[in-house]
């Protein structure tokens, strides 16, 4: 790899400023199409380092009830992957944040991996998070995405062995996603104690930055990981806030301090 990934660069810039990078997640089209794009632009303007756009899928096995409900709603509105890419293309060059599409294998596969990689790169996408694609199934896709400079973000967690961490770390680009709980997405009051030890192992295994996600809902909670994680991913708590009519910018600001 020649040039450093945009995602790595954004996270390192935040770290250089003395804070963890902030990575908000919103499912595309939530709470409706117009508000989604308004919130997307507002989060970018507020200084979100990387923005994760959820690509809706009917059967999200890695997601908890808040995201599942949001996704069901946008699917009823008929949102599509093509629409996400088209919307990003019209904004290409104007977005400061790194942009990641997070979604399950099937909608991507039906779009066609080669076409997806071409269209996503042209629309200003920097990487993909695909929770139901473990290392063993990812070879072909990693090659296709990598050829366009797109990162396939590995997900690891509390039960990922050192051998499997090493497998994911070898050739990883962008950043690594550390899942904080043995469970699905959803904000939690407390996180398991073993997380500190496991996170340290992951951080040692990866040369790219490590982002902590699943279960993070409050700035104080995120701050406990300062120096232990390079970035925090904020999903369900933000989705809930935005769904209740709140502004994403206001929600993110305390995390960005």
């Amino acid at each position: 790899m020649g040039r450093e990934s945009r995602l790595t660069e954004r996270i390192k810039a935040a770290n250089a400023a003395g804070r963890m990078a902030v990575v908000p997640y919103l499912p595309f089209g939530y709470p409706d199409r117009a508000r989604f794009w308004a919130e997307f632009e507002a989060m970018d303007a507020a200084g979100a380092d990387v923005i994760e756009i959820g690509v809706p899928f009917s059967d999200p096995v890695a997601d908890g009830p808040v995201i599942e409900e949001a996704v069901n709603k946008v699917l009823e509105d008929g949102v599509t992957l093509a629409e996400i890419i088209a919307g990003l293309r019209t904004r290409a060059g104007t977005v400061r944040a790194g942009v990641v599409l997070m979604g399950y294998v099937n909608p991507f596969m039906q779009y066609g991996w080669e076409r997806l990689a071409d269209d996503a790169a042209a629309a200003g996408v920097h990487g993909f998070i695909i929770p139901d694609m473990p290392f063993e199934e990812s070879g072909e896709v990693r090659g296709i995405l990598g050829a366009r400079g797109l990162d396939l973000i590995p997900l690891v967690g509390l039960n990922t062995s050192p051998e499997r961490l090493a497998m994911y770390a070898d050739g990883a680009t962008g950043f690594a996603y550390f899942v904080s709980v043995l469970g699905t997405t959803g904000a939690r009051e407390s996180l398991p104690e073993e997380i500190f030890e496991r996170l340290a192992l992951a951080r040692k295994a990866f040369s790219v930055p490590v982002a902590l996600g699943f279960g993070i809902g409050a700035p104080e909670q995120a701050r406990r990981f300062l120096g232990l994680a390079d970035a925090v991913i904020i999903g369900s708590a933000l989705v809930k806030h935005v769904g209740a009519g709140g502004s994403a910018k206001a929600f993110l600001e305390p995390f960005l301090k």
Binding site: A62, D132, P134, E137, P154, L155, Y168
Partner: peptide
């Protein structure tokens, strides 16, 4: 066939 599961299920 295959194993399209989250990494958390691989162990």
């Amino acid at each position: 066939g295959g194993r399209y599961v989250p990494e958390l299920l691989m162990p």
